[in-house]
């Protein structure tokens, strides 16, 4: 059974890497969870973000960061649900519950 992978994204320059790594990990049967924080929450407005949400097992963003980047919390990015507009506790879950960890 493939190991699970948690990805913590804090750089707004890495969406293509997040997508590439998620795709490769899913092809190996891995459970993949991704959490975006701070300026990386702006990536949720990238047209490719929705495809990441469809591919990964779980995608969430830090809602406080999203608000600080100038977005309304009612403006839920395509691919997410209001429940996935979350807190740093999601990062804690990645660290505690996933076999492998990657920060990007």
């Amino acid at each position: 059974m493939a190991k699970s992978l948690g990805i913590f994204v804090s750089s707004p320059e890495n969406l293509q890497h997040v997508i590439g790594i998620t795709k490769a990990a899913k092809a190996k049967g891995s459970n993949v969870k991704v959490f975006f924080t701070w300026k990386a929450t702006t990536l949720s407005k990238d047209p490719a973000f929705k495809s990441l949400c469809e591919m990964a097992d779980d995608v969430s963003i830090c809602v406080d960061s999203y608000k600080k980047q100038g977005f309304s919390i009612d403006d839920v990015p395509e691919g997410l649900t209001p429940k996935k507009m979350a807190t740093q506790a999601q990062h804690g879950i990645i660290i505690e519950d996933f076999d492998c960890y990657l920060s990007l």
């Binding site: 804090s10 701070w38 960061s65 990062h91 660290i95 505690e96």
Partner: peptide
């Protein structure tokens, strides 16, 4: 410098998760 303050907040976020 644009990442330090929020990064400190992320560190606090893990401390409250018992790390």
């Amino acid at each position: 410098k644009d990442y330090a303050i929020d990064g400190i907040r992320s560190a606090l976020g893990l401390a409250v998760e018992n790390m």
